[in-house]
Nucleic acid binder design. Structure first.
Lengths: 348, 348
DNA sequence: GGAGTCCGTGGAATCGATTACACGCTGTCG
DNA sequence: CGACAGCGTGTAATCGATTCCACGGACTCC
């Protein structure tokens, strides 16, 4: 592959001049410029990003470490991150941690080794030592969705508190009194926060949240199934289950059906994170929708601000309830909305 | 960030010795080795992958250019690719082309600029000039899922021919005679092949495939909706629709429901590509399942073989029919299988 | 007409690693 | 006892870019 030297030789100028043309530095004569451009063309020359990065100490690359690519929420997040990054002239390398701290560590390490300009992280299980160290060492970093308290790192996330209150109101209005929750790992902020908000909302209705109605999941479908089976085995099973992510909701749906029971007749179901497929499940699932795309874009903007020396800002955006049929038939003034994306239009 | 020079200074040796220790070259004294290792430890030194890549002319990175990350099929593919690559000591950079040739070009270009060791591509729309050029220039490359004929590039893909024949048999057995298809872009191999196989399978039953029953889609949900609406507007609408990817199937489902019609009573529906959610839709959708994970792993192995100088092999794996309820109730000897992954167990 | 300015250009240092080559030392063998 | 092999190490070249500095020539201005 042709290097800058070959171009210089072909154009009859020095490498310095070629470099100047490539980075359109002002002081190059038109003559030299056209000759260099011609040489670039005929040689099919493309600058070596590796060499450039070594010299300039910047890679124009962002690292994104997420907990689970197979989760449609994170897939969408990753997509919006890449889009915004591209618009700002950056590439993105995605590391999928699969909710495993060791894998998260692996990806943080390789990304750091590659000298990415900044790191976008949705930490699994309270984060890894490496990540904390990198944050403290001053690596530009932004947390997205989940975060780690006590670190001076901007956080871009959705606040589900109000939407969870709406959900509890919705469930209450539909006559459900015994409400249970499938929690995520307590070590993740989203894991604990959603339970907290749920508990507080219940308190507003004078309802307790007994320990038996708090199932411990890990954001994966299988745990949703397991926890829900536990609920169903209770002497007095809950009337409604709130799964704190979409995969666990799927597991819950499985578990309920496996007993020959029906949603919402035998048990109501709601989920945190809305995804296109929820419109098409049987029944369509009531969910709390995050502004995922906006979250991804805001996170990138914050990180790039930080990288380029501007003060980065934490961002919190509201989530909102999207009522469908999985909790029972809502009244007319329920916030019924299935028209969010083309895929979702016209159904349920 | 500490460099190899700092380590050398701290350990009281030359950079060459440090490098030798790091790459565990045999001829280093134990004394030097321990001193270097100690210095590495206290400085928290990590080698700069950028510098190393420049010198060694290899990045131990694979590029993966796929057509649409939001499509669960490709998400799963990407995940298995990353897994296998990691096992072989490589990283993966994913480029999402969103079915747009210009974006595909953009990603191929940046990946090439970064001097990735090899490229895994699922070409959108017949591929870009850049890609063809790279292939001809000898960039290690492997096609996965889709490919471009006439290029000396190994292909790793699933053969859906037999499964499509099974599907047609299944539909025929259930009494459906007027069968339509939603095709993908003709410029993609998967787009044209699936139509071809469908046509041939129909021919075995003496059935034609009239042009009116071939809808032109683009592998996105919206096109599935549009095409299906066209089918429904026909004086004699088809009795069954076969969508050649999962997103178009979703669009079709939408379109059918929007008219107040039911699947499979009013129209049967089947899809190419099986995904976990198909078990949970209303009704569960009959689909042709590709061995996605195996495809991704085989593609990485082929590419790494090519990179490391071993002869790479093209691989073709069979797809298979997974009958569910969207085409009508099958007989007992139908190949009913909902037990592929934990998420899918026990339902439909 | 001499001093100073500006412009285009090239030489060379530099980024952080790898690695060919040379060198000094020790030990072996004829 | 001299030659030679082998080992551990350091010096320096190298990868492909960017960029500081200096230089020569043209031009302006007093």
């Amino acid at each position: 592959m042709a290097s800058i030297k070959d171009v210089a030789a072909a154009a009859g100028v020095s490498v310095a001049t070629v470099s100047r043309v490539l980075n359109d530095h002002p002081s190059v004569s038109d003559d030299a410029r056209t000759r260099v451009l011609a040489a670039v063309e005929t040689l099919g020359y493309r600058p070596n990003a590796v060499a450039r990065s070594l010299r300039t100490d910047q890679t124009r690359t962002l690292g994104l470490v997420i907990s689970d690519v197979l989760n449609p929420y994170f897939t969408e997040l990753a997509r919006s991150v890449e889009e915004e990054a591209r618009a700002l002239g950056y590439s993105v390398i995605i590391g999928n941690a699969d909710e495993r701290p060791d894998l998260q560590d692996h990806h943080v390490r390789t990304l750091l080794d590659r000298r990415i300009d900044g790191l976008l992280v949705s930490p699994a299980e309270g984060g890894s030592p490496l990540m904390l160290e990198a944050a403290r060492a001053g690596t530009p970093m932004v947390f997205v969705d989940r975060w780690i308290p006590g670190l001076d790192v901007p956080v871009v996330r959705a606040d589900g508190r109000a939407a969870i209150r709406d959900l509890v109101a919705h469930l209450h209005r539909l006559g459900h009194r015994r409400l249970a929750i499938i929690a995520g790992p307590a070590a993740t902020t989203t894991g604990s926060e959603r339970v907290e908000a749920f508990r507080e909302a219940l308190a507003e209705y004078g309802a307790p949240l007994p320990d038996a109605y708090i199932g411990q999941g890990d954001f994966q479908a299988e745990s949703g199934r397991r926890v829900t089976e536990g609920f169903l085995d209770l002497p007095e099973p809950p009337e409604a289950v709130f799964a704190t992510d979409n995969l666990m909701a799927l597991g819950a749906l499985d578990a309920i059906r496996a007993r020959g029971l029906q949603v919402p007749r035998d048990m109501a179901l709601a989920a945190f994170d809305d995804i296109p497929w929820f419109v098409h499940t049987d029944p369509p699932i009531t969910a709390i929708a995050q502004p995922t795309g906006e979250l991804g874009r805001a996170a990138v903007r914050a990180l790039v601000d930080r990288i380029e020396g501007r003060p980065p800002q934490s961002v919190t955006l509201p989530a909102r309830l999207v009522a469908r049929r999985s909790c029972g038939e809502g009244r007319a003034n329920d916030n019924r909305d299935d028209n969010q994306t083309p895929v979702q239009r016209s159904t349920s």
